[in-house]
Amino acid sequence: MLRTAVRSLLVTVAAAALVAGPSLADAAPAQRAGDPTFHMPEVGSCHVVTAKQQAAFSASNRSVPCSSRHTSQTIASFRLRGKVDWKNTEALWSKVARKCYPAMRAALGTDAKTRAMTSYDILWFGPTAAERRQGAKWLRCDLVLRGTKRLLPLPTDDTPLVPVPVPDSVAMCQTDRWITVCASPHTYRAVGAVRLKGKFPGSAKLERIAVRRCPDLVSTRKWRYDAPSSQAWRHGDKVLVCLAKTRR
């Protein structure tokens, strides 16, 4: 289930992270009924998550070799303790965020500004109703690469997820409504980033910061910005990205 909601035209309303770098490991989930880790995907396992599954609470945990085509890689999975209210997605997301943001930073590497200017994001999922009836109590975070409404394939070799300089195949651009890579048609391109600090300033102050700082980073009359949510900020995502209008 996507809980790092697609970054909006002006400001990120929910996220972008998760531990250990990319691996070619294939998942071997536990199969014992009554085990809280029943069918819990392993960190490093790769999957094919469809566009339809992005908004679902659960997605297939069947893994594929990371050397073959895949659209997500599990970068954090963890067991939940105590009684779980599966309908309280806000509380579940709070638990996910503590694990996912650090794991995403570890998986992508490089520096905060460079990471923020890519189209990488995270999705999170829980067990299916059938798995929960078998005792499953876990959450999973997957690294994905956004391409408007769909997910793009992740690298299948040993190349870095974020090469420097960042290529258009992973660089963050936006259409009028969606995040995508700059290799696809787009109307805005990330051209600069501002690293911030301190407590979360709120959306109004973030907008004032963007108005003050972005004109020095863009060369076009029209521009927009992408800023972290309060949850993302709490877990270390404190970068505001400035996007310039393009003709592509």
Rank of each mutant, 00 (worst) to 15 (best):
V84P: 02
L143E: 03
I209E: 05
I75H: 06
S63V: 05
R105N: 13
W233C: 07
I122H: 00
T37D: 15
E90F: 08
R150F: 05
Y101H: 09
V49P: 11
P163A: 08
A33W: 12
R132C: 11
V191L: 00
Y188G: 00
S230P: 09
A210T: 04
C214S: 06
A227S: 14
L123Q: 01
D142A: 11
V241E: 05
K83F: 10
I122W: 00
T159Q: 14
T12F: 00
G236M: 02
A232R: 08
A20C: 11
R133Q: 15
E207K: 13
S67W: 14
H186T: 04
P185L: 09
G198K: 10
T71E: 09
K83H: 15
Q53E: 15
L80V: 04
S230E: 14
F200Y: 15
L10Y: 08
L161M: 11
V164K: 05
D158W: 12
S60K: 12
P127Q: 06
Y101I: 10
P201W: 07
A227H: 02
Y188F: 13
A27V: 02
A112Y: 03
V43M: 10
L154W: 03
A244T: 05
D35P: 00
D168N: 11
D216I: 01
R213N: 04
R7V: 13
A5M: 04
Y225H: 15
G147M: 05
Y101V: 10
R105I: 09
R189I: 05
A129S: 11
A28N: 12
R213I: 00
C242V: 06
H47V: 13
M40W: 03
V164W: 06
A129H: 08
L9Q: 12
P41I: 01
D176V: 00
A56Q: 15
A103H: 00
R146D: 06
E90Y: 07
L243M: 10
M117S: 08
D237Y: 12
S63L: 09
V181P: 02
W93V: 02
T246M: 04
A107T: 10
T220L: 01
K113P: 02
L243H: 06
R224L: 08
R177T: 14
R213C: 05
V64I: 09
G202Q: 14
S58M: 04
N88Y: 05
T89W: 12
N88G: 05
W233H: 08
S72I: 01
R115Y: 02
T71N: 07
D26Y: 00
V49L: 14
T220Y: 01
A59I: 01
C46G: 02
G44I: 05
D26R: 12
T74Y: 02
A103R: 02
F200G: 05
D158H: 12
T156D: 02
F38Y: 15
A56H: 13
L161D: 03
S68M: 09
L243E: 08
F38S: 00
G21T: 13
C182N: 04
P167Y: 06
R7K: 08
A136T: 06
R189F: 04
W124K: 01
A25M: 03
Q231N: 11
W93F: 10
I122K: 00
P185T: 09
Y101A: 06
C141L: 06
I75A: 03
Q73T: 13
A210C: 10
T50A: 09
S72Q: 01
F78L: 09
